[in-house]
Write a protein that binds this DNA or RNA. Sequence first.
DNA 1: GCGCGTGCGGTAAGCGCTTACCAAACGGGA
DNA 2: TCCCGTTTGGTAAGCGCTTACCGCACGCGC
Lengths: 370, 370
Amino acid sequence: MDQVDTGHIPPTIYDVARVAGVSIASVSRVLNGRRNPLPDTRERVLQAVAELGFIPDGAARALSARLKEVIGVVIRRPSVTVTDAGVFEDEEESLQFPDLINRGIEVAAQRRDYNLLVCSVDVDDHDDSRRIFALARKSDGLILHDQLLGPGQLDRLSQQIPIVTLAGPATRSTSNVDGDNAGGMRDLARHLIQDHGYRTFAYLRGHADSPNNLARRGAFEAEVTAAGATFVDGPQWQGNYSAAGGTRVIDRLLADGHALPRAIACANDQSALGVVYALGQRGIDVPGDVAVTGFDDIPVARHLRPQLTTVRQPIQELGATAFEILYSMIGNGEASGRDIVLPTRLIRRESCGCPPEKTTPAWRPAQREM
Amino acid sequence: MDQVDTGHIPPTIYDVARVAGVSIASVSRVLNGRRNPLPDTRERVLQAVAELGFIPDGAARALSARLKEVIGVVIRRPSVTVTDAGVFEDEEESLQFPDLINRGIEVAAQRRDYNLLVCSVDVDDHDDSRRIFALARKSDGLILHDQLLGPGQLDRLSQQIPIVTLAGPATRSTSNVDGDNAGGMRDLARHLIQDHGYRTFAYLRGHADSPNNLARRGAFEAEVTAAGATFVDGPQWQGNYSAAGGTRVIDRLLADGHALPRAIACANDQSALGVVYALGQRGIDVPGDVAVTGFDDIPVARHLRPQLTTVRQPIQELGATAFEILYSMIGNGEASGRDIVLPTRLIRRESCGCPPEKTTPAWRPAQREM
DNA sequence: GCGCGTGCGGTAAGCGCTTACCAAACGGGA
DNA sequence: TCCCGTTTGGTAAGCGCTTACCGCACGCGC
């Protein structure tokens, strides 16, 4: 009776069966469209369902049908830096990219009547596996952003549940979906070297163990050194995919009296955003003094001054593809071990030194409306 | 055997019991810390669990314990406008605010070992209730952004499951958490009127049925007319909380030859972003010719040129509070009918006509680092 | 007119857990 | 030494669904 006064005692399939004067099997069959029940039976069931506001319990259905229609998505957040302006700062700044991916996943998932169970883990939370494991058994499959779980744990878990990663190599038991990091960075590097003639470069890193970060850095450095240009490097160039991280790198560099390279390629747009900001604060002109580029092409990249030159990833499509692969793995354990690479594309805007575009940015639909 | 070759056959509690040589009850007790099992029993169970990599199934546990440890979160997306640049445009632009709220919810939820089941519904999808209902039975409670579900449906559903809304009035059976829309708008209006001396105003609306939108508009208009200033209005001022929506409003207005008011208060930051952009395209100076303000204070507001004057909501706290209320409703049906209003604060930046700040924006932690 | 095929509804057996209840074993006081 | 209180482990009964299986009623062909 503790429960009664508060309500929240949803009707069960037994209630429906009783009200409709049929058996629970008939109710279930009507609701799931099995076996083609008699119109009369069907009518009475639907009537009772409407009357009671019955909605089948997800847990019971999942247990019985061995299908939860839920997939788990784990994303990595930059560690929370506690400052006097609040504890959420790094995070707030770095929200966009993973969330856009998730949106892509969700769009695809909705078409299959799946829902997303999301979970963030702190970048340097090394007890994260507990959280991820728990999530795993609440879901039919897992999508892991960035590098989460060591190879051992990944392998272990993928034995029990289908897993798609959004970075890193596919394994025997997992699949992977990725943007073409190397191709994008190569195009970017060539543009900076050949079209702009820059000769000194740096790469502002993302999380040290992120496969995307490693791939981007590798391709960029290779291209730069292959062209005989100078690649500046060092631990000072360690960022964390967040705007605050980018700012921090520049501030430290300058405070330590380092000279800046002519062009800085950032691991992602968020970092670039912080870099542009920090340079602006010091009166350093972008791209006049230093060119800055990003990676991802998140929406704000277009609203920055100068507009950010970057490598566009098909963000939503990455998510949607990840879901579809996972879905097929859930349906029939096949298809694991697949490694999908989606194309990326260099987007030349102003921050690399290109002249401002005159064309209307894509998201302005004005002229189509009239 | 169809299943065998693909793997994915997780061990059950029976397997653990067999390997450990105990009963399933003992396994369960060890795992859940009930009853204080003998060290020997405990040891053997833990050993078997490790060996098998056993993780209890969420659905089974939920069914038995009548607790899913999952809460559903429903957010509203602007309708997808199909343009030649892709189908996700409006959405992409408007991502920030609800996602930040969700992050706040999640931070709070993790402390209680809860996960978030997220679901987006299209703004004018009127079959949305099906999706929401389905989500409801996969969760222990629901948090609804904006206005979702009519009062009738809301009431009906809240009979079966605890619900917290993030806009709109609390009802007998639901609770609500909100920012102080009226207070924020009032401060904003007074600032524009008294400090800047503007005399003509408009309010660029959000979704027509959004309670936040209504509250903001009401407070703003009241303050403006109370001061004897002019409040321009009309169906042309209908936006949709997205940047693209803001752009569209300005473009149409100008195309139709309307004169613009001296100041435009937008329903949220995203809309303001689009407005600032559209005005910039036409060579109209912000704030010189037209002042523009937002609402929410999402992170990008600070990176805009000019930096956006807006009303700050305690975004993450809104989410965290919503979760805590919901959590207490789940624990014991009490506490529904609560209506929490969190304070908002006017943030004066440049887009209202105030001089650029010289202080370092909050998210720049540089000087604290050295 | 009878036998059998077909199509529907009902009964009951799980799905993988938690936990109430019972049995057994052990320790201590009389 | 016996009895009872105290622990701890096991057995089994659900949690709310899905579905295999069975039985019944009908319709057809002979």
